[in-house]
Structures are given as C-alpha cells and as structure tokens.
Design a protein around this nucleic acid. Structure first.
Length: 535
RNA sequence: GCGCCCGUAGCUCAGCUGGAUAGAGCAUCUGACUACGGAUCAGAAGGUCGGGAGUUCGAAUCUCUCCGGGCGCGCCA
C-alpha cells in the first residue's frame, strides 16, 4: 500500500477534527528536496488556512498536535515547518514495504496503471514517404512514438501502432519516373529524386517490374528493416491509395457534405475550419478536380476513428501548422477534438567532433537512419533519442553517443542491470538461492545506500504515470539513470556476498537487487532498450 | 505580421498542473579496490533560471511584455 494513503487519511481525520472539510480536496504530499524537512511533507495547512479563517502556521500546529497524538503507520515524528508545512518523519519500515510491493508485483505489474481503462488507442508514427530510406531525423519520431505506445500499454490502453503510407499523388509518380530513369542508366528528371540510393534500388529491380509498385515495396522494406533494428514494429501499415479503391475518400467527402461542413467557391470545395479555430478555410478539392493532400488525410483519420476510441499522432515540427485544421476536420465529422492528440517532435541536429553534420532534403543529401544505428548501436540510438524532451530541439553528438563509456548514460544503466545479474550469479556460486520474501529479513536493510534504492523504486509508479499523462518518456530515462546510480553506489559500499556479510544480510540484499532489477527492466522496456545480462 | 517550440552551471539537458537552500551528466580539480565486473564510486568547484512587470504566504514553474533562436503560416505534399 502506498504510504501516502496512510498519511492522507491521517491528515484528513485531523482536518475534520479542527472543522475543515477536506472531502473535495486532493491532499498534496511530496518528498521534500531537503532531507531535513522529513520524509514526506504536506502543504494542506497553507492551502486551507484562508478558507478556515485562520493562518497557516496556527492550523498547521493543530494538525501536527493531532497527528503526533495518533500517528499514521511508520510515522515517528510530525513537525511544523516554514510557512506552515506539516512534515512527517518515517521509520525505515515504510521503505521495506516498497520492497515488498516491488517483488510481489514484479516486472509485470509494478508501476502499472489503468489510466486508459481499456480504451483502444491508435498511435500513428513515422509515416514517411515510401520513396526513400528513413533519415536520421525520422529516428526521433520512431523511438518516441513507440515509447508512447509502450507507456500507454502499461497504463491500461489497448494500443495499435500504425504507419501511414503516402503512396498516392504526384510525388509517387515522380519517384516511379526517377527509378525507371535510373534503371535505364539515365539521370532522374529534374523534379525527380536524385539520391544515390535510387541507383542501388534500380539495380535490384527486375526488368518487368512496375517502377512505382516495385519501388513502393522496396522503400517499405527498407523502412521496415530500419525500424526493426530500433525495436519498432507497427501493427498496421495503412495505404493511402487503398482509400481510393475502397471509396473511403469519396465517402468522407459526402459525409462532410451532409454535415454541411464544406462549401463550393471559385470552383473548389472548401472545408469550414475557421469556425473551429483554424486561420482560414481549407481546400479539399482543387479547381482542377484533384484532391489536396488534406483530403486523404482526413479520410484516414476518419477511418482510424472508426476502429479506435482515441488517436495519437506523432508529427515533426514542420507539421505543427496542420494541427488546428486536422482537429477542426475531426470536429466537423462529429468527433471530440480532445480525442485526437498530436505530439510535435522538434528537430534533431547531428554533430561529429563538434562539427555540424549537414542534412538537406534536396538532392537526397541526408544521413540515413541506418547509418546512425550502425555507428552508435540500436540501444544507444534509442536511449539518446528518448532521454530528452521532444519539445526541445536536440543535438545528437555521434561521437559521444558511439562511445561506450561514461559519457553515455545508456551503458551506465545497462551496466547496472548486468551488474545485478553478475551479483546474483556470484551469489549462486556461493550457494545462495533466492529465498521466499516471507523468510527474508528485509528489516536488515538500513544502510543509506540500501534505502536510496528503495526511495527511487518508490517513485517509479509516479514517474510512469506522469510520463504517460504528459507524453514524456524522457522522464523514464531520467529515472533509469537515477536507479542505476543508486545501484552502483550501493554496490561499492554494501557487499552482497562476502566474508563479513551474514547469511541474513546476503539474503536481504539479494532481495534488494532483485527489486532494483525489476525497476530497471520496467524502465528499459518502456524505452525499448535491451536489459543485457552481461556486457 | 500571426501561430507553435525553446532560452536554466563552461557544454548537453532535467525540473514547468506554484513549495522550503534550483538538479544531473560531461568537462575541470582532488581522492577510492589484496572480497560481488573500475564501463564503477566519493569529494570540490561551477547559477542575475534571457530582461522587466504582475498574481500570492511562496514563482525556474502561472499571466503580460520585450529580447534572442528554431519551425511553420499554399487550390505544394
């Protein structure tokens, strides 16, 4: 049971005794940054003093006196501090409860939540054009989208990972022409695709193949292989072209027409998005009868909604301007725009030896995602993409990330996991077998290093919940680093197996490292990074 | 001009639904194994949280404004 439940009910009862109604109040409890302020602290007195017609310190003192007279479990002291904080000091036993929780719930259930209540969530990410290999910039969205999916799965959503294939329209026609030209040994057309990869692909292409169809499959095979290296696997690859054949696009247009969401003007068909927060109305069908890019996109989102309760899109920074129109379009189709979440990932810069590595979309002059993975390895690539908030522009230093040393947090975390495996196997060699928790004297865990591991583990459920709520997997990466630091520090000061260590302490510490391992495995899995047993 | 993101230690970044003395890694300096992997650990130093104003018991966090950087603002995709 979460210690905060105990403290909350104690505070709630005390508030009732002094005549403050706390029923509709979420009593905040936090771990003070400063240890001198105790193990847990509440600001209820500061928050409620005004409405109670008193001042925070006076109210706080009343609460402290009541709580001290009848302390909640584990509480050894209750103190008033600062402007009116109620601070709790706890016996180490509260952390021993954390150990029990972690080991009883295990990797499968610790830090699992039910925020989604089983709702079907469609997470669409990557969705790169099927006419070139994935480039380094795609890596961020790929790893982010996949970790979002993992977080949501752990938090009670039924997730579908989806990749949209823009396989219709002029850019695909140009791609087919470029591929055919390369096949003939010619340069691609001026408005075609210039990248060297086309030379290789053309060489692979059978003489009788349709360049567009074959080229589409070739590009998708390339995407699939690259993503697989990053441990990213989509459940659905959804073709834009399929919506022409299925009539989904026409259906969408008539649906919008029936809802009076479109109007005709200057020979084009317009969507009324201004009424819903967009800058201007948007053309769906151009004067020449062609569709704009927006129309299939709307049809696609309409289709996703037909099979999902909620949608989550990962878009690059260059697409943030389309958020308002897509939300407006969904609203015009009768959906709650709040059920469509769109995350924007800021751009990534690559440096090597401090020098910027140039990327330009023109003439296919880009760093291939494959090359990044080959240079730094899949785990380092994933961890690096994910350790930073996607709201910030990222600088990805290839030298630093490729280094298998201290500059590189992924190895630091993985090493902590490998080290635990090593300890366990060492203990096994010395004749120690994992004992049932009931027979383990976990109350022997009193060293500050031991308790630090447990404090950190106690935070993991909160970290996972928050990371899910604010779509920030980087929080999990930061936690993993902290847990690893706690483990390494423990390792140096507390021997698990050794001449001066009693059997009981060895058993207790084996339980402790097992719990740390559970936490590390949960975190690494959410990040899609492997947890090696040796390195 | 309008919209979104960012501005925190020398560098790369956390912290942002308000909490007490603003954190981590790297870099710099000083230390630590005759027992579990030194890819480790301990310590030191390092700050006008871009500037200003406001909200209040309290602001890196919320509001306004200004400055600086990035990305967008098509009957292109």
């Amino acid at each position: 049971m979460d210690i905060r439940e105990h403290l909350r009910s104690g505070l709630s009862a005390a508030l009732a005794q002094v005549g403050v109604d706390s029923h509709d109040l979420e009593i905040a409890l936090e771990r003070p940054a400063n240890r001198d302020h105790g193990d847990w602290s509440s600001n209820v007195a500061l928050v409620t003093a005004k409405s109670a017609g008193t001042n925070p310190r006076a109210l706080g003192q009343q609460l402290v006196d009541l709580l001290a007279a009848d302390p909640p479990p584990h509480v050894t002291a209750v103190e008033l501090a600062g402007p009116g904080f109620v601070n709790f000091r706890l016996a180490d036993t509260w952390l021993h409860d954390v150990l029990t929780d972690v080991l009883e719930q295990g990797e499968a259930d610790y830090a699992r939540h039910n925020l989604g209540a089983g709702a079907r969530l469609n997470v669409e990410f990557v969705s790169a054009n099927p006419n070139k290999p994935l480039h380094a910039g795609h890596g961020r969205g790929a790893c982010y989208g996949d970790s979002i999916a993992r977080l949501r799965e752990r938090c009670g959503y039924q997730v579908t990972r989806e990749n949209y294939i823009n396989d219709r329209g002029v850019q695909m026609a140009r791609y087919g022409e470029s591929l055919a030209a390369r096949k003939r040994g010619e340069e691609p057309p001026e408005d075609g695709y210039q990248g060297d990869y086309l030379i290789d692909w053309a060489a692979e292409m059978p003489d009788d193949a349709d360049p567009l169809d074959w080229g589409r499959e070739r590009a998708l095979a390339s995407h699939r292989a690259t993503l697989a290296q990053l441990n990213v696997h989509h459940d659905v690859w959804f073709s834009e072209r399929s919506m022409v054949d299925s009539g989904a696009i026409d259906e969408t247009l008539s649906d919008l027409r029936e809802r009076d969401a479109v109007f005709d003007h200057d020979g084009a068909v317009w969507l009324r998005t201004t009424a819903l927060g967009d800058d201007k109305d948007r053309v769906l069908v151009k004067g020449d009868g062609d569709l704009t890019y927006l129309t299939p996109d709307i049809a696609y989102h309409r289709d996703k909604f037909s099979r999902s309760d909620r949608l989550f899109n990962v878009w690059g920074a260059d697409h943030h301007g389309y958020v308002a129109r897509m939300k407006a379009a969904m609203q015009l189709l009768g959906h709650d725009p709040g059920e469509l979440e769109i995350a924007i990932t800021q751009m990534v810069d690559f440096t090597r030896s401090g020098e910027e590595v140039k990327m330009s979309g023109r003439s296919g002059d880009f760093i291939a995602l494959d090359d990044i993975i080959a240079e730094v390895g899949p785990d380092a690539a994933r961890f690096t993409y994910l350790i930073q908030s996607v709201d910030s522009r990222q600088t990805f230093d290839l030298d630093v990330v490729a280094e298998q040393g201290m500059d590189n947090p992924v190895f630091y975390v993985q090493y902590a996991h490998a080290r635990i495996c090593s300890i366990v196997s060492r203990a096994a060699d010395a004749g120690f077998r994992p004992a049932p928790l009931a027979e383990t004297k976990i109350e022997l865990l009193v060293h500050p290093r031991e308790l630090e591991i447990l404090r950190s583990l106690q935070e993991l459920p909160d970290v996972v919940r928050l990371a899910c709520l604010d779509n920030g997997p980087h929080r999990v990466a930061a936690w993993a680093r902290e847990q690893a630091a706690a483990l390494h520090g423990f390792y140096h000061e507390c021997y698990v197996v050794g001449d001066g260590v009693s059997t009981e302490v060895t058993q207790a510490r084996l339980a402790l490292v097992a719990a740390s391992q559970v936490g590390l495995r949960v975190a690494l899995d959410l990040l899609g990074v492997s947890a090696p047993e040796s390195m």
